[in-house]
Design a protein around this nucleic acid. Sequence first.
RNA 1: GCGGGGGUGCCCGAGCCAGGUCAAAGGGGUCAGGCUUAGGCCCUGAUGGCGUAGGCCUGCGUGGGUUCAAAUCCCACCCCCCGCACCA
Length: 971
Amino acid sequence: MSYLVNIARKWSRVWEERGVYEANPREGVPKYFLTAAFMYPNGPAHVGHARTYLIPDVLARFLRGLGYNVLFPMAFHYTGTPILALAEGLATGDSQYVSSVAEVFQVDAAELSKLKDPVSVARFFHEISKNAMRLYGLSIDWRREFTTIDPEFKAFIRWQFKKLLDLGYLTRGSHPVGWCPRHNMPVGMHDTKGDVEPEIEEVYLIKFVGLDGLGYVVATLRPETVLGVTNIWVNPSIKYCVARVETSRGVDTWVLSCEAAKKLSFQRNVEVLREVSGEDLIGREVVNPVTGRVVRVIEASFVDPRFGTGVVMSVPAHAPYDYVALRDYVLSKRGGSWEGLEPIPLIKVEGYGDVPARDVVEKLGIRSQDEHTLLDSATKEVYRVELESGVMRSDVASLVVKEVVEGARSFVEGEISGVPVKEAREKIKNFLRSRGFGDSIYEIMNAPVYCRCGTEIVVKIVKDQWFINYGNPEWKKLALEALSKMRLVPEEARTQFVHTINWLREKACTRSRGLGTELPWAPGWIIESLSDSTIYMAFYTVIHKIREYKIPPEKLTYEFWDYVMLGLGDPSKVGVDQGILEELRKEFLYWYPLDSRHSGKDLIPNHLTFFIFNHVAIFPESLWPKQIVANGWVLVQGEKMAKSKGNILPLHWLVSTYSPDVVRLAIASGAEVESDLNLDVDVLDSTRAKLKAIHDLVTSIFRESDLSQVVDLPERWLLSRFARNVLSAYDDLSGVRVRAACLKIFYNVHQDILKYLEMVEKPSKVLRDLVIMWLKVMHPVTPFITEELWHEIGMSGLLATEELPSRDELRKMIDESVELSYLFLERFVDDLRNLTKVVRGNEAVVYVSPEADYKHLVESIRILREGGRMSDVIRYLVASGFADRKQAPKIAKTLIDLIMSLPPELLEAIVKVGSVNEYEILLRFRKFVEEETGIKIKEVYRSSDESAPDYGGKKRAALPFRPSIMLMSSS
RNA sequence: GCGGGGGUGCCCGAGCCAGGUCAAAGGGGUCAGGCUUAGGCCCUGAUGGCGUAGGCCUGCGUGGGUUCAAAUCCCACCCCCCGCACCA
């Protein structure tokens, strides 16, 4: 095992020293430019990266072998906030934390504990990962490596964003985010306890004006039920605040729970004037803004001060909570009298009575307002059926007793009565909002969600947020156009891309903290990571030259990039030597457009789509990317990798434990790109065994001194099979079917060589030539062991720079007639074996058809291909004299069955080759057949041989490609 | 809820887009045999049911349909996985 790791160390160093993978423009040579998503170093590169990076590497090596000038670069993405959290954790010096991180990542705890700031954390994992990638054999041009906090890169990103701004694709506004009041920063899923995504939703507010002059603002998801309000709920045991609250119409005075007031202060200005107890509010009267009805404030224990405003409107006909609370109240305080509080039916729903809430409550047998689980499911049911199939009753206008706002009655009459709930909801919302009685706040629907620090998360409205407006219809059109011209692997991803492009709206593109590039015109705002990584592939084309010519970052101006990337402006006025500038421009144009972009499938709905959008925004059509390859996950022992599970397989550990070639072959042959790959230890072990077997086979072939010079049937067969497998593997690789290619190159070829060795007494010299070709075609997947073998068998030069056998060269090696003969033999063995299962016997007499009869098979194939039926075949057989009228149908049936059972390629081969000399083949491979089946071949006769005995009447049953066999027991 | 992907033999997993090459590739497991001092390595064969002549029957989530012919096409249903953003 250490052998494989050692040769990897040796050859990766040699390749690097000789600059084998440093790609420079070469005029007249076709280029291929591929990139994989650079990694975010908040941990070491792991087996997931290993997969995403291996696919382009195999393609890169393959294409180099076919004569392409291939560029495969890599960089590191420092932008973002997760590294901050990690650095924060490490900086506390908590040794338990440090050692747990060290363990999942398989890194040195002492080293780790020295890291105090985000940048050194990033550098630490960057170095580990980079070294792992080098040992892993990725054929990367490392001269072009960079990080996203390099000044040159920042200059490039500033240019990109200025471009987006000029194009009108950037907008500004405010928007709600999950927010930790203690950290004073936005929190996403990865900063919360248990990785919970805070679900932020807009909740509607309706203001009931109290007769005391205060605004009693209720929060609701169902504004249409405002028509059926019988009372207002407050919780008597909690504190309420009277506060001056900012609204779109100026400042208003509201009553709301003090907790709500505090939360709301993150969304708008709130000034608490005084506190009142819930108790004090009981019995006050408020006016329904739509119906004008005056209702009372009543106590209810179910009211949650943390949700909405802590003030709730009561709609007993359609809200189970309200119905039950009201029932409690009526029974305990009013001796069962509902007078004045009767549920007011608003919505008709099939299958329910006038008061659906009551129906459901009774169905579930709910007894009190404290049975939250039951009430929640009741609420869900009523909400769902009313939304889906509910219609506002036609008499709702009569509920308007007094017009608080002008036109309320005619509004309800004309727009609400008789319409579906969904529609009524929108109309009432708009009506109330336009009259100053409607508003909305944001609420965390899955509250409580806690920050990692333990503080409960609130919703904050971030102001002056910058967005990239992916909702722009013109832009979408361009993106769709680019997509339609792009090749996708897998093709199934296309619909997902189309939907993503259509669905995307404004994307917040800045953050208030983290590593990255500042928005040039808005200091303090950092461009977030999904936004600064959309066109950086272009940056690879020139960064090494910028460094080589020592162009200082301050000279990388807007004009500089405009010229290099777009050829705009006057190169003499850029402030950089014009010759150099032209050289950069030329190199960019040499490599661009990008030929293939690789990443995990998880990036389809974000990065890969943004990648398309930004390319079409900034670059002309001729420079749009040509292909995207999105690969599936890597599962470890059937499970998804996760830090929390501790089952992350870091690349540096993998390659030093199992060796790069083993890991590469296991990943490459484990699954096709689109599907998830399950990696477990057994697979790695058996892959290692496979490589060892190949290694030993190759060395033994070259150790063997006694080789024949013949190029006979077995040799021709071997060469032909090899060529076929390799050609087919080439096609696979061109279609990014790496697994299929691997199976052919590593498994089929290997097996054929073993078969060949069985066939011959003494291997031919031809085998050596074939092995040399074999090493070449294996090299893209397992570069190290093949390079080592290359030298071991005495070849000169580096295998890494060798050309692969060309398609033409391979095609010439194909020999259909030999392959057909061999196939015939295989089928015969199968047939014979099959027969031994049903008939006892240990020796066989075989009748083969004369070669001349093949013309009947060929003709029958032709007839069937041209749409002929059995009758046509019969007619032909009789006409040709092959069969008489009596036997023809039976023969035709067998013939057709035979033809139908043969694969089209084989039929093609039969037609092409014309015939098989069955007699000769069987005699020649008699021993082989006997060994394979355990049946002695007593005699082989031509069925046309008059003098041959006819055992069991089998003589006449022979058909081309299907000898007739008489099985018997020797006495 | 919206969107995407998928349900295949004991297990994993191809094949379905271009219907007959499909009892259904390839692994794994299991069984038998070989190699071997021994085998955890490797090699060969078997692995839905039936069959003393190379064949028949049943079968690819469920139920219908189209067709001479369906794992493959159409319709309905059931079930599983993954995304829904400001986060890499």
